[in-house]
Amino acid sequence: MTTLPTNQDLAQGKAYVAPGITVYYDARRCVHVANCVRGLPEVFRPGERPWIQAAQAGALAVAAVVRTCPTGALHYALDSEGPEAPQAPTTVTPLPDGPLVLRGNLILQTPGGEVRDVRAALCRCGQSGNKPYCDGTHAQVGWKSGEG
């Protein structure tokens, strides 16, 4: 039997509550890909506080944009359905000169213990200060994957 992540598993970071949805943001996992800002600029407003204003769009639209976050810095739980379900099958995509992007029913071993998740960007350069997650250090140190 497959065990899916629960609200407790995904509820890492600060919660932003709006009608129909709660969005969770874990700043330590954000590498500023900005899919959220491009996808719903009326909701994801980095120049304002609070920067996530989930009530500015429908819950399903917010959930759809959160699912585009490759790092897992953003998660959601819909009031009607609970936490986001993992993608099937699980995929692993190496980004050129960047992290491994995972999507699926994930069980990650971290320094803090086992973490269940649905999306993550994992460090490949070995220099992240937030291992196993990518924190963007690869760009600062000039790490190259040798792909391409």
Rank of each mutant, 00 (worst) to 15 (best):
T71E: 07
A57F: 05
G72H: 01
L40H: 04
V62S: 07
E42K: 15
R49E: 13
A63K: 03
R28T: 11
Q127L: 08
V141F: 06
V65I: 15
E42N: 14
S128H: 09
V118N: 13
A88K: 05
G142T: 09
A61C: 04
C30M: 04
I107Y: 02
R29W: 11
T110C: 09
A77F: 12
K131H: 11
A85L: 14
G142A: 07
Y25G: 01
V62D: 04
A54R: 05
T6V: 09
A120S: 11
A85S: 06
E147P: 00
G13Y: 15
P89C: 06
T137E: 10
E114P: 04
C125A: 09
T68W: 10
G126F: 07
V43W: 04
P132E: 13
G142W: 05
R116P: 12
F44L: 02
L100T: 04
L4E: 04
A11M: 06
A120N: 08
G146T: 09
V17C: 06
R124M: 04
A88R: 04
M1D: 11
L95I: 13
C134S: 03
E48N: 03
L60M: 05
A59P: 02
V23F: 01
G20S: 08
G72L: 06
C125V: 03
V62G: 10
T6P: 14
D97E: 09
A85T: 13
T2A: 11
E42D: 14
Q12Y: 06
A34V: 07
L106E: 12
R38S: 09
V101R: 07
T22V: 12
V101I: 15
T71M: 07
Q53W: 09
C125P: 00
I21L: 04
A88S: 13
R103M: 00
P46T: 07
N7L: 15
G82W: 00
H75A: 14
Q8P: 00
P83S: 01
L40R: 05
L40D: 06
Q56C: 11
R38D: 11
A18W: 02
I21A: 03
L108C: 04
C36L: 09
Y16I: 06
A121K: 02
A15C: 03
E114K: 10
K131E: 07
P99D: 11
S80F: 12
D79P: 00
L95P: 01
P89D: 02
L78Q: 03
